[in-house]
Computed example of a mutant assay.
Amino acid sequence: MAAAERRAGVERAIIVQLDFGGDDLAEQIEEVCLLARSAGAEVCAVVQGRRHAPDAATYAGKGKVEEIAAELAAHAAELVIFNHELSAAQERNLERALQCRVIDRTSLILDIFAQRAKSSEGKLQVELAQLEHLATRLVRGWTHLERQTGGIGLRGPGETQLETDRRLLGIRVRTLKGRLARLERQRGVQRKARARGELLSVSLVGYTNAGKSTLFNALTHAGVYAADQLFATLDTTTRKLWLPQAGHIVLSDTVGFIRKLPHSLVAAFHATLEATAEADLLLHVVDSASPARDDQVADVNQVLVEIGASRVPQLMVLNKLDLTGLPPSVERDEYGRIRRVRVSAIGGQGLPLLRAALAEIALLKTGGTSRDASGAAVLQAVDRHLDSDRSP
């Protein structure tokens, strides 16, 4: 494709996915291609390979690097994206061999987060994650300045330029952490105020692109940005939701999770994700039409363990039933507790069932009525909604 025919601002990228055994390769390739497109890249080709272990120098090995170089030349691409974690040395070696920019999975996700962060806190969190990731890679940009500065007018305090840069970066990281800590304390005060009001606190969690923001908008009419993209929204949004049977609850939409979410992002978004860990209930939104939904559920639960939210009760919401053709429904365990609700956030089917389920849980938390009476009343409401949803 001629340069004049390319879309302005779009980088042409080659994806590299290696198979070390044990994972669904097709699913991983589909996901990294979605990530690349979400970042604004045009995927030209995917280079695959099988290895027993990563190559210490180039991760992919000499022969595979030559294959990547051939694809770069054939498609006139300028970017290589590895769907793996590369060390700083591996990135440098690959860039030297391929004569183009090379980024890994963490850098790709950080770039998407940088594009999507809208609030001041979200931007601070992304900057912190980027700086902490950059700290291990500073040597790449400053190799020509690693020697001691000297000469007339250049004699300094004895630091190399690299050491100076690391020191300045460390100062900025501490500043960002301090600002985020203040915001975290403010949010803690707000959570305590809500807790004194005995409002049920509910956080939406789920794999990215499962439809959390669409469901949040359908329930609260908040107008949160929602799109068929990975990480369409980053900033936490909280709204009150009125339930006729139980009054107000507090509902929060949070950032979507993904397999192998970079630890730097988990740490940087600790203040935001803390709302999830301190919620009374998690609405675990699942893309029921995805063939990889079981793996996605496992990945979300793994992130919940990392942020200390694994013990928070969950209500699973099987979304996108409009794509599966299944009817709206409520599933209960052997003790009669609601465990799953099947809905379509975009079509509205099953949303009355979800509201009734939330009302039942809220009544049990607040003790507004007796347990048996509240449960019976909500059960009758659920049955009525089931009949109305199933009627032509």
Rank of each mutant, 00 (worst) to 15 (best):
K320M: 08
P327L: 14
S344I: 00
L323G: 10
G348I: 03
K320D: 14
G348E: 10
E331N: 02
V317Q: 13
S290F: 06
V341P: 09
R355T: 07
E360Q: 14
R293H: 05
P313W: 00
Q296H: 13
V312Q: 14
P313N: 02
S329L: 06
P313C: 11
E360P: 01
V312D: 11
R332W: 01
A289H: 05
L304I: 05
G308H: 12
A362N: 05
A357N: 04
G350C: 02
L363R: 12
V330P: 05
A357K: 00
E306D: 12
T366D: 01
V312W: 06
G368D: 13
Q314E: 15
L323I: 08
A357G: 08
A357M: 11
R355N: 04
R332G: 01
V343R: 13
D333W: 02
I338H: 02
I346P: 07
R337D: 09
A359N: 06
A309I: 03
Q349P: 00
A298M: 08
A292M: 06
R332N: 03
P327K: 06
G336E: 12
E331S: 01
T366K: 12
E306H: 04
V341A: 04
R342H: 08
T369K: 04
L323K: 13
V300D: 07
G368H: 11
A362K: 02
D322H: 11
Q349Y: 05
P291G: 03
G325Q: 15
A356R: 07
I338Y: 03
R337S: 10
R342A: 14
G350A: 04
D294V: 07
Y335G: 09
P328C: 03
P327S: 10
L318Y: 15
G348M: 02
R311C: 09
L315I: 01
M316E: 10
G367A: 14
L304E: 02
P327R: 13
S370D: 15
D333A: 03
L326P: 13
G325W: 13
T324A: 15
Q296I: 00
P328Q: 02
V297Y: 13
G347C: 05
E360N: 08
I361Y: 01
I346L: 13
S370Y: 06
I346G: 14
T324C: 15
L315E: 05
L351G: 04
V300G: 12
I307S: 15
L318P: 15
T366C: 10
N319K: 02
E331A: 00
Y335I: 00
P327M: 12
R293N: 00
L315S: 10
T369H: 09
R355W: 07
L304T: 00
P328A: 05
A357T: 04
A362L: 12
M316S: 11
L321V: 14
A289K: 11
R355V: 04
R311D: 13
E360F: 01
K320V: 14
I346R: 15
A289F: 10
V305Q: 09
G308S: 13
V303R: 01
V300Y: 00
V330G: 11
V330Q: 09
L351E: 07
L363N: 13
A362T: 00
L318H: 10
S290M: 08
Y335M: 08
D294T: 02
L304H: 02
D299G: 05
I338M: 05
E360G: 12
V317P: 05
V343Q: 15
